[in-house]
Amino acid sequence: MTAPALDRTLDEAALQARFDATIAAGHRIEPRDWMPEGYRKTLVRQIAQHAHSEIIGMQPEGDWLLAAPSLRRKAVLLAKVQDEAGHGLYLYSAAETLGADRADLTDKLIERRQKYSSIFNYPTLTYADVGVIGWLVDGAAICNQVPLCRSSYGPYARAMIRVCKEESFHQRQGYELLMTMMGGTPEQQAMVQDAVDRWWWPSLMMFGPPDDESPNSAQSMAWGIKRHSNDELRQRFVDMTVPQAAVLGVTLPDPELALDEATGRYRFGPIDWSELQRVISGQGPCNDERIARRRAARDDNAWVTEAATAYAEKHA
């Protein structure tokens, strides 16, 4: 009676060995391959929060669609917000290859059992915020996302390639918007500086806590899900952004920001991690508003879903 259990152990060891060999060879894991349960759960968590972030990320900028200053800006912003919806859908699609269910993930988001990026809990106070989100927030997202194109899980990596192609447009339209405003009136220039002052530190927080406070990073690295450490990516972002700020003519709000001649990299001041903790735990300026709107989108539009289903059943 014990034989089947023994066989299962042997099988599992063989499957684990094959999985490890695939990862070690730098090959991709595909949906129907055997994978350790921890790998699957880690991926579902990560892909789901990523998808939620894209969907919630439509809101701060979407607030400006009806107030865009020109038809050109409106068309650009509409395309960008539509892209965010698309990115969310690519990612839910990748999560579903792991056995997750999109409707269930959405419910978990609305019940606040799964989270989205803290950055979207800040308000967009002026049109300059639209530009700064494109430049800094999408710039930081690109730093995070480019390495994910080589993630060990095939469907996730393929979704990220698609996302990264489109993200470049997001960053460039933001920077161009800011350049236009910096060429405008002193009031417009002040709006840009104010937006930079508000978004700079939250953008640095997007990379997560310092490496010595990320205990599970090592496992994700070993699995090829994560490719670079939080601090490494944060430093890369700062080094990329400082020269861009100089061209734009804005000041980044950090008196300690300085070039380290020896390394060629920029040193920056301490980050207030208590703020990140506050915002993530639900105390940010817009947490309630974001979730309430997502809930309303699900509930108020349920009749559309039901009508389309009824139509499909009638014509089946």
């Binding site: 892909i47 990523h50 990026s117 997007m206 997560g208 990320s214």
Partner: peptide, 10 residues
């Protein structure tokens, strides 16, 4: 928290 997964720090 992980920053991996796009917009990060979740």
């Amino acid at each position: 928290l992980t920053a991996e997964g796009g917009h990060g720090a979740v």
